[in-house]
Design a protein around this nucleic acid. Structure first.
Length: 282
DNA sequence: CACTAAACCTGGGAGC
DNA sequence: TGCTCCCAGGTTTAGT
């Protein structure tokens, strides 16, 4: 799925074209991709309401509507948000007829389609001021990885309380820092020259500062390049991002390290494939 | 606390 | 062609 940079690309694309518009209709082709908090809330409660802003926290998109309602969208692995007016007519038709298009948000400016092959993605409609009832995954998010409030000390402090997890597992833990997934975790650790299976409790302050800097650098660079399209990711205009060409380890298992020429290795950490250079990373 | 596997799903690619 | 197996930008839950 999209990680933070890809979700941010989608957010920044949609915000100027949709904010200020009223949601004319929420068309659900499948009911099971939507949940509401509290449960009794009907999903159509946001129909007719003005979309005021589109925010992002970690990998969540927040469509903020009038009267304190918010539509949370998480794309998980293969979810896409496609703004149909940005697509050639032929592609619009394909999206409308695609069996994996599960929801359509009708705005005056056009239709926003939610498409998700694997159906892991979710739409969650919440009352913004009822925080105790919010979905757990959203409530426990740590600081956003590109936000101003995020500091290197957040990483170190999380490590103090979870000293026996690997540094890779820490980066993937959305409670430690929100928005990092498998691609950018591996890229960050390579650029920091740190082995992914090192224990979080044994990372020095200087190393945490390095991880923090490299994480921010790679995320901002990817945002500037339109994100990474490794396989499924497309932006709201159904176009690929261009950051794949700058990946140094992700997807390069068995290929030579760009620094030293050693063959990159793959191990499993926290259930995820992890690619690293056994020589450059210490 | 922390690790693993399984669950949620579909499709693409490799190997036979 | 077709079958089987493995893999996938994520997260949650159950079991050890």
């Amino acid at each position: 799925m999209p990680e933070l940079p890809e979700v941010e690309i989608i957010r920044s694309y949609l915000e100027p074209v949709l904010s200020g518009q009223a949601l004319r209709k929420l068309e659900l082709r499948r009911e099971d991709i939507v949940s509401t908090w509290p449960k009794e809330l009907p999903a159509h409660v946001i129909q007719g309401k003005e979309l005021t802003t589109i925010d992002r926290k970690g990998k969540y998109l927040l469509f903020n509507f009038a009267d304190e309602f918010t539509l949370l969208i998480h794309l998980r692995m293969t979810g896409k948000l496609l703004f149909l007016p940005s697509l050639p007519e032929e592609e619009q038709l394909q999206v409308m007829e695609n069996k994996h298009t599960h929801a359509l948000l009708h705005f005056p400016a056009g239709i926003l389609a939610f498409n998700d092959v694997r159906r892991f993605g979710r739409l969650e409609i919440i009352q913004s001021d009822h925080s105790p009832t919010l979905p757990g995954g959203f409530l426990t998010l740590g600081p956003d990885a590109v936000g101003d409030e995020f500091t290197w000390q957040d990483l170190r402090d999380f490590a103090k309380h979870h000293s026996r997890i690997s540094v890779k597992a820490l980066l993937l833990d959305q409670r430690a820092v929100a928005g990092v997934g498998n691609i950018y975790a591996d890229e960050t650790l390579f650029r920091s020259a740190i082995l992914p299976h090192r224990l979080a409790g044994e990372i020095s302050d200087a190393e945490w500062q390095m991880v923090y800097q490299e994480l921010r650098n790679v995320l901002f660079s990817s945002i500037n390049a339109g994100g990474t399209s490794f396989r499924d990711y497309r932006n709201a205009g159904n176009r690929e991002g261009t950051f794949k060409q700058f990946l140094q380890v992700y997807g390069r298992s068995g290929l030579p390290c760009v620094n030293c020429g050693s063959l990159l290795q793959t191990i499993k950490i926290a259930g995820r494939s992890t690619v690293f250079c056994p020589v450059c990373q210490k």
